Amino acid sequence: MNSAHGTGEAMSTRPFVIVLIFLASLASPLSDSFLGEASAADTLVCCDSASVNLHLLGSASAGTLSPFSEDLTETETTATIANAVTSEETVGKWILPNVWPGTIPANTWDVSIQYEVSSAASAQVNATASLKIGSQTFTASTEPGNSILPQGTGTLNFAIDVDATSISDMGAIELTLSARSVVFTLPTGDAKLEFIWGTSDSDSTVEGEIPLFDLVLAEPEVEGSDVYFSVLIDSNWGMDMLSKSNSLEIIVNGQSLTGDPIETSSDGGVRVTWTWQGAKGGVEVVTVEAQIIIESGGETL
């Protein structure tokens, strides 16, 4: 159930067929009301894991990761290396706490760190990005072609191969960036290398596949000629999963339901309910699917 800025994604449930049975009310034979029932139970429809961009936020010593671009601020955060480094130095650590339990598939995670080199022609960097997922740690270091950072701004990239693993409820994902050596070429004055994150213009990210939530299509409720369709979003982000996401919609018979749905907290998760007034009465079969987009511009799962 999600998507991302540029490299995000939309998650959608596979369509479910629901049989609605409407009976004309015997008490009011001239009215337009119906008595009805739905032959469908609560159904878990999504998601084992999903591709997501985790944005680096906060300080270098106590940073966090967030799947929501809305958490980016207008003030960038930096970690500065102003002298040549000859021994390993930690640049920063960022943690995504309380990850939803599930399986993380084998895949390559992409770490993109924004930087700026000033008062030098370039900086040659020997750096390592480490991902701790649950109890396992995976690392990648700068390649020869990616180790020389020219003057000005740019992006330092790491491709970290992650093995299939599982993560328990309230487990954490931690990114650590460290530099073993930094050498400035043709320094003039106070040469420095700054790593930058935390704003939309300097958005450093980790892209990978993780469990984000459970998406449940609730048993429909029939009241008169109205049918109420609800989606339950169960995650460790509570109402943020809804308020900070780009959009959430439910589609009945190929048509997105319009109008403002009712949003309520439900056992730590979120319940969103739409009213459908397209029932015709009698025995009716409808196809229902739901989609949530965390950030715009991604593929549909």
Results as ranks from 00 to 15, higher is better:
7 T>M: 13
9 E>F: 00
12 S>I: 00
15 P>G: 04
25 S>R: 13
26 L>P: 12
28 S>H: 09
29 P>T: 04
31 S>A: 11
32 D>R: 14
32 D>S: 15
32 D>N: 15
33 S>D: 10
37 E>F: 13
38 A>R: 06
43 T>A: 14
46 C>M: 14
50 A>K: 13
51 S>F: 01
52 V>T: 12
53 N>C: 10
54 L>Y: 04
56 L>I: 02
56 L>E: 03
63 G>Y: 01
65 L>E: 07
66 S>V: 00
68 F>V: 00
69 S>M: 00
69 S>L: 03
83 N>S: 15
86 T>K: 14
87 S>M: 01
92 G>F: 02
93 K>V: 05
94 W>H: 04
95 I>A: 13
95 I>R: 12
97 P>V: 00
100 W>E: 04
101 P>M: 09
105 P>N: 04
115 Y>C: 11
117 V>C: 11
118 S>I: 00
119 S>F: 12
121 A>I: 03
123 A>G: 08
125 V>W: 03
126 N>H: 06
128 T>Q: 08
129 A>C: 05
132 K>E: 01
135 S>L: 07
135 S>M: 02
136 Q>E: 09
136 Q>M: 08
138 F>M: 03
138 F>V: 01
139 T>P: 15
140 A>R: 02
141 S>H: 08
143 E>V: 08
145 G>W: 08
145 G>A: 15
148 I>Y: 04
152 G>C: 04
153 T>H: 13
154 G>T: 02
157 N>P: 05
164 A>E: 11
164 A>H: 06
164 A>Y: 01
166 S>L: 02
166 S>W: 00
168 S>A: 09
169 D>M: 08
171 G>V: 01
173 I>V: 08
176 T>D: 12
177 L>R: 07
177 L>Q: 08
179 A>G: 13
180 R>F: 01
180 R>K: 07
183 V>I: 05
186 L>D: 15
187 P>H: 08
197 W>G: 04
197 W>H: 07
201 D>L: 10
202 S>E: 13
203 D>H: 06
204 S>W: 03
204 S>I: 00
205 T>K: 14
209 E>D: 07
211 P>R: 06
211 P>F: 03
212 L>S: 09
213 F>D: 07
214 D>K: 14
226 D>Q: 10
227 V>K: 10
228 Y>F: 15
231 V>N: 04
232 L>F: 05
233 I>C: 08
241 M>P: 12
241 M>Y: 11
241 M>I: 06
242 L>V: 01
242 L>H: 06
243 S>F: 05
243 S>A: 06
244 K>L: 04
245 S>Y: 01
246 N>L: 11
261 P>G: 08
269 G>D: 03
271 R>V: 01
272 V>Q: 03
273 T>Y: 10
274 W>T: 06
276 W>H: 05
279 A>D: 12
280 K>R: 11
283 V>G: 15
284 E>I: 02
285 V>F: 14
286 V>A: 12
287 T>C: 10
288 V>L: 14
290 A>V: 00
292 I>D: 11
294 I>W: 05
295 E>T: 06
298 G>N: 09
300 T>A: 15
301 L>A: 07
